[in-house]
């Protein structure tokens, strides 16, 4: 008989791929986003200032930095999610495949149709597991092979095996980690071009976190991911490119976030060129 606490039998249920393919030179990568001189303001107060960076296709791009450095503000600019906040305004440009999505003539609904988002806290609809995925498909007119699409999305989100026998059960009966994977399934089911993730694992346990990191690895050949995380190990594990944001202080006590350094993840974590990045990634943050 096997003793239940025999450590040799405990295996990690999900393995995270940490060996990264060497990245092709940046000139060969296709740019999805070209952000230039982006300022984002809430009620006239800047939350981020002068951010310029490119996001490349089929890579995982991580945004790291301390709390309050504008990571979430930045990622929410990429799919016009900040439009929901009345006092929000922005200057600069965000070109998505060459088209400036900050232009008032651009329909935010069309932007979000192409650029999906997964939020910090799992937010499934109070519907069945199946309907959570199928509802968006139906509303957006992807009605052919509905069941097949639902199954594929749930499989891609590594949730299918756990829920295939209870698709009609309420999504709220799932655990937090399952709910978050359901939200990912819902987001990728409608076949977006980019998936934005705003600290998707901050409310999850390590196993669920590992599952989500694993699925980003396996899905990045089809999608482009931008992930905000305050967890540096997570960025190091999943991201090809990493952007480090930090807080700057003005003379009169104003604070805003700015992009300090943006480079290949390996470079950011092993040989950062900015002192502030080095302090942050080595834990000497001050």
């Amino acid at each position: 008989m096997q003793r239940p606490n025999d450590t040799s039998t405990i295996e990690r249920s999900v393995k995270v791929e940490t060996h990264r393919q060497p990245m092709p030179p940046r000139e060969r990568l296709e740019r999805i986003f070209a952000v230039e001189h982006l300022d984002a303001l809430y009620g006239g107060k800047p939350a981020i200032k002068d951010v310029s960076m490119d996001v490349y296709k089929n890579l995982v791009t991580a945004i790291i930095g301390p709390s309050g450095c504008g990571k979430s503000t930045f990622i929410r600019c990429l799919n016009r999610m900040n439009d929901l906040i009345p006092s929000f305004s922005q200057t600069g440009s965000i070109r998505y495949h060459g088209q400036d999505i900050t232009d008032p003539g651009v329909d935010p609904v069309a932007v979000r149709r192409n650029i999906g988002m997964v939020f910090q806290r799992p937010n499934p609809f109070p519907k069945s597991i199946q309907d959570n995925v199928a509802w968006g498909l139906k509303v957006l007119g992807l009605k052919d092979n509905l069941d097949e699409r639902v199954e594929r999305a749930l499989t891609q989100a590594a949730l299918w095996d756990e829920v295939k026998d209870r698709l009609k059960a309420s999504a709220l009966s799932l655990s937090g980690g399952q709910q978050q994977r359901l939200c990912i399934a819902r987001a990728i089911a409608v076949e977006p071009d980019v998936v934005l993730m705003d600290e998707p694992a901050s409310a999850l346990d390590p196993i669920a976190t590992a599952a989500i990191e694993q699925l980003m690895h396996s899905l990045k050949s089809e999608y482009t991911f931008v992930i905000v995380t305050h967890n540096m190990q997570q960025a190091a594990r999943v991201a090809d490119m990493t952007a480090f944001f930090s807080i700057s202080r003005g003379e009169e006590g104003q604070r805003w976030g700015e992009l300090v350094e943006y480079d290949a993840t390996e470079k950011i974590f092993t040989a950062p060129s900015d002192k502030r990045t080095e302090d942050y990634v080595t834990g000497r943050f001050g």
Binding site: L84, V109, G116, F119, N123, P124, G136, A187
Partner: peptide
């Protein structure tokens, strides 16, 4: 009705009116 539910629907590329009608109102 939590803001996060509206965000979930809008982030899929669903228009505001449809979000209100199908997600917010039933609640």
């Amino acid at each position: 009705v939590p803001m996060s539910l509206r965000e979930a629907s809008l982030a899929l590329g669903v228009p505001r009116w449809r979000t209100t009608l199908s997600i917010v109102l039933p609640q």
